[in-house]
């Protein structure tokens, strides 16, 4: 009998712990459901396309806006991709929120689902658009334009042209595709056409050759290995471009491992800490930043207004563009200070 006592104790404790967790979740949901809906503060939701520091900045913006316009916002970051995001959105519908801002992971295939959402609540998209869906508007950078901006930064870093390689987490999301296309169109000196899509082959223009694009499906070790393998296969590559926030730090890691920091130009997107440090000490030429804080801020502002019946906040063409900026050596210090302030890290 005494032999099984520790086992029994374990089972009991584990059971209590599990039921405790479950209970907490259930209580929270119940509180939400009983909240009077249209009495006062609108309840809106802000859904990202994954988990990243980028979204933490957006969350800060969303929460700042919620305080400013007097509404409740819940921020959700799906950790397991498409199906996780769908689950979260469905749960939000069940909770009857007054509006949802979502960054669709796979806009083309999610269109039907997004239309269902739009039919049952106020839906807007941010960061990555689903132009064919019934969403009311899109908040974010025009990724094609951001890509073009990145292309000009590459051209600025390599005035005589050269060979370029691109790295990205997933190419199927719209923002990745458009960024890449923007870069290609500038480097290959073609006319602006956001709808063009080039296959992943080596492409040469008058001055630049884009050797290829590698994806890592968000596996960091794989992302780094991709850069290393490109350095092996193309020892003479002139510039490496990271299309997603975490790609640029991985490029730096791989270059450091190869002892080639500073020899190869690095251009990135977004404001990962390592990227900004790299710019400050000259290892990264520049980065194209969006303004995630404003994504969050504008999304909540628009949703709250719509929930109160004010449709004047909707832009005419459905695009609420938040322009991308280039952060080079000259801008990095000021940018960092602003970032820390928004994240509440200053001091």
């Amino acid at each position: 009998m005494s032999r099984s006592a520790p086992a029994l104790a374990f089972v009991v404790v584990a059971g209590l712990w599990l039921s405790g967790c479950g209970g907490e979740g259930a209580d929270g949901a119940a509180a939400d459901a009983t909240d009077p809906l249209h009495g006062g503060r609108p309840r809106v939701a802000y859904v990202s396309n994954g988990v990243d520091a980028f979204w933490v900045i957006a969350q800060a913006g969303a929460e700042a806006a919620a305080a400013a316009v007097d509404c409740d916002v819940s921020v959700h970051m799906p950790a397991e991709g498409l199906s996780d995001q769908k689950r979260i959105l469905e749960d939000l519908l069940v909770q009857q929120v007054d509006g949802i801002a979502v960054s669709p992971i796979d806009p083309v295939n999610q269109t039907g689902f997004l239309n269902d959402l739009a039919a049952r609540t106020t839906l807007i998209t941010h960061d990555s658009d689903a132009p064919d869906s019934a969403r009311l508007c899109f908040i974010g950078v025009d990724n094609y334009e951001a890509g073009r901006l990145c292309g000009t930064l590459i051209a600025e870093a390599l005035p005589d042209g050269g060979e370029v390689f691109l790295f990205v987490g997933r190419i199927e999301s719209d923002n990745a595709r458009r960024r890449r296309q923007g870069i290609l169109d500038v480097l290959l000196e073609r006319a602006s056409d956001p709808e063009r899509t080039d296959a992943d082959v080596s492409l040469s223009g008058p001055r630049f050759t884009v050797l290829g694009t590698l994806t890592d499906q968000f596996d960091r070790a794989k992302g780094k290995a991709n850069v290393e393998d490109v350095l092996s296969r193309h020892p003479d590559v002139d510039a490496l471009v990271g299309l997603f926030a975490y790609n640029t730090p991985l490029i730096l890691e791989a270059l450091a491992g190869a002892g080639r920091l500073g020899e190869v130009e690095v251009i990135g997107f977004d404001e990962a800490d390592e990227t900004l440090t790299g710019i400050a000490n000259g290892q990264v030429h520049a980065t194209v930043v969006q303004d995630p804080y404003m994504y969050g801020y504008r999304a909540v502002e628009i949703l709250a207004a719509l929930a109160r019946g004010d449709r004047s906040v909707l832009p005419e063409d459905g695009f609420d563009h938040i322009p991308a900026r280039a952060i080079g050596a000259d801008e990095v210090a000021a940018f960092r200070a602003q970032l820390d302030e928004r994240l509440g890290l200053d001091g």
């Binding site: 990243d52 968000f218 596996d219 960091r220 975490y246 730090p249």
Partner: peptide
Amino acid sequence: LFVLDVGSAQPVDFGN
């Protein structure tokens, strides 16, 4: 060793 090599880790998918 993985994190010392890669330099950063993302809880969602590191080591998936």
